[in-house]
Design a protein around this nucleic acid. Structure first.
Length: 361
DNA sequence: AATTCGTGGTT
DNA sequence: TAACCAAGAAT
């Protein structure tokens, strides 16, 4: 049989990890880890939350910024939530930032500023689910927890040639991960599985020749590792339409408002917009502007969210600083400090560049 | 259990 | 270039 005993897999992978691990800002290298050194639980937690559905490259600058602003979890707990949202702006999935703040508060107020050191204790905290609780427990506390993210799903599904589709096959795969996870160096094992998935066992054109599991892998033996994991068909992405209104005063202030706490871009800052509907009717005209002004169309911004595409017609107006009951006027020189999601930065950039072209101060 | 949550890089 | 997808969680 091609399959070896599961227990033999872990040393093989750890040996590979010792030589080929990625060096990451939040990580303790395997040599230090073997000497008993552990990564700071705060750093591990912060990086893991940022890395949820987000690439290492995107996370790196945010991780550095957050640590500079808030060196300890108690600093983050004490920070104004608006500051946290502004610092998170651009990273996406903004519920993570709200839960990050809540979690920091819980750790500071209910756990004396110390993270729980068990998977169960971690799992009870806001924004920490099945994956993240297992990952922190393994990486920061060397617990023998089964860590399964998208990388691990890919590695496991190929190793065992699991053809049942995700997400239904998740429990089966997690059981396989649990079988493989060693009591020795479980944290390094988890990180090694993810490094293997990220650098060798990639979604397209995996480098099987360099894989420590090559001789054990059923998918490789079947000559079709790329066909794993099998996933359920995804729905097609609908298109929604809307209009955004960028009002600027002669003094160089733009009208901003805050979105409601829940739902899409919850708690983030925006310029006034119409509702985003599935039809074009009215959404692309200035009829629904926040107040009467000389609204001028200045093009369309297309932005792709997870489950729909938005085509936002952008309007701008140079106006007096009218009183608004919902929102505030912010100097455009201070927009960088606002909690503006990327779609709003696109809309504002489209409008303001034109405003300053036509009306240089 | 299926949906709803961003964004940017890669292929 | 359109599709895929990245250290998933909450509801």
């Amino acid at each position: 049989m091609l399959q070896t005993l599961p227990a033999l897999h872990a040393p093989k992978l750890l040996s590979w990890y010792d030589r080929h691990h990625r060096e990451l800002p939040w990580r303790v290298n395997p040599a230090a880890a073997k000497a008993g050194k552990r990564a700071d639980p705060y750093h591990v937690w912060l990086s893991e939350v940022m890395l949820q559905q987000t690439t290492v490259q995107a996370v790196k600058p945010y991780f550095a910024k957050f640590l500079a602003l808030w060196p300890k979890v108690t600093d983050l707990a004490a920070a104004p939530v608006e500051d946290v949202m502004a610092a998170w702006a651009g990273l996406g999935y903004y519920a993570r930032a709200r839960n990050l703040k809540k979690c920091a508060e819980t750790v500071a107020l209910e756990h004396g500023g110390v993270f729980p050191d068990t998977e169960e204790g971690l799992r009870a905290l806001p924004g920490i689910g099945d994956y993240t609780s297992a990952a922190i427990a393994a990486i920061a506390f060397n617990r023998q927890s089964a860590v399964m993210d998208g990388n691990v799903e890919r590695v496991i599904s190929r190793l065992h040639a699991i053809d049942a589709p995700l997400p239904g096959s998740k429990p089966l795969m997690k059981a396989r991960v649990a079988e493989l996870t060693p009591s020795d160096r479980p944290g390094d094992f988890a990180q090694a599985m993810m490094d293997l998935g990220a650098t060798i066992c990639t979604p397209k054109r995996p480098t099987c020749a360099l894989c420590p599991f090559r001789d054990d892998c059923l998918a490789f033996a079947e000559h079709d590792p790329e066909s794993f994991p099998v996933k359920a068909a995804k729905k097609e992405k609908p298109v929604r339409f809307g209009a955004a209104f960028v009002a600027v005063t002669p003094g160089g202030e733009a009208l901003l408002k805050r979105r409601i706490e829940s739902g899409l871009l919850g708690g983030m800052t925006e310029v006034p917009t119409t509702a985003w509907t599935s039809r074009v009717d009215g959404g692309t005209t200035a009829d629904h502007a926040p107040f009467p002004a000389g609204w001028e169309a200045c093009g369309t911004v297309v932005h792709v969210f997870t489950h729909f595409e938005l085509r936002l017609s952008v309007f701008r107006a140079l106006t007096e600083k009218v009183a608004v009951d919902d929102g505030w006027w912010e100097p455009v020189t201070n927009l960088e400090a606002q909690a503006l999601p990327t779609v709003m930065k696109k809309a504002i950039a489209q409008a303001i560049s034109r405003a300053f072209e036509k009306h240089p101060n």
